[in-house]
Simulated scan of single mutants.
Amino acid sequence: MKKMLIGSVLALAAGLYAFTEAPHTLQGRWENVTSTKDGTYRFLAVFRADDTYDGFMNGKAFLTGKYHFQNDTLTLSDHICQEGYTGTYFVQFVTPDSLVFRLINDTCSIRREGTDGVTFKRLPVKP
């Protein structure tokens, strides 16, 4: 009986561990494609392990900055909005490979307009 009880507890713990969601990461390459009457725009964001990121618009360097990501909250700064001005966003992972940024606070209107509510898809790692 004792062995059966211990076995049941271990099986339950293993089952709960198997369904525990792994922490999300921003590291990697994320792309947003937006089509308007003026054309299609591709924005690529590359988040690195050293807390820096770059943004490319239609293949051309657009911005560079720093970020901090913890508990689905992203704080970032960049040279367009001056590095002293940070923006804070909730990162809603729709799937492990897609996310939406939700505004918490950002005084930089250019960054806010280009980030709040925007959906990104993770791109595969380059070989």
Rank of each mutant, 00 (worst) to 15 (best):
E83D: 10
I110R: 11
A49M: 05
D51R: 14
M57Q: 14
T95G: 10
Q70L: 01
D50C: 05
Q70R: 11
C108V: 01
Q92G: 09
S98M: 06
I104S: 07
D72A: 03
Y85Q: 08
S77R: 04
G59W: 01
V100N: 14
H79K: 08
G55V: 07
G84D: 00
T88G: 02
Y85V: 08
P96G: 04
T73L: 00
L99V: 06
F101D: 06
N71C: 00
L44D: 06
A49Q: 06
H68V: 08
Q70A: 10
S77N: 08
T73F: 04
G114L: 11
T95E: 10
I104N: 06
R48L: 08
V100H: 06
G87P: 05
H68N: 12
C108L: 02
T115M: 13
A61P: 12
C108Q: 02
L99C: 04
N58G: 03
T86H: 00
D97H: 07
L103V: 01
G55R: 01
M57I: 08
D78G: 14
V91S: 00
T75Q: 06
A61N: 12
F69E: 04
L74P: 05
L74S: 01
T75E: 12
G114F: 15
D116V: 01
Y67L: 03
M57H: 15
E83Q: 14
D106A: 11
D50V: 03
H79E: 15
V94R: 12
S98R: 05
G65V: 02
F56K: 09
I110S: 10
L44N: 03
D97A: 07
F56I: 07
V91I: 09
T115A: 11
D106G: 11
Y67K: 04
P96A: 09
I104E: 11
L74V: 07
F69Q: 09
V91T: 03
T52L: 01
K66H: 14
S98L: 02
T73H: 05
V46F: 05
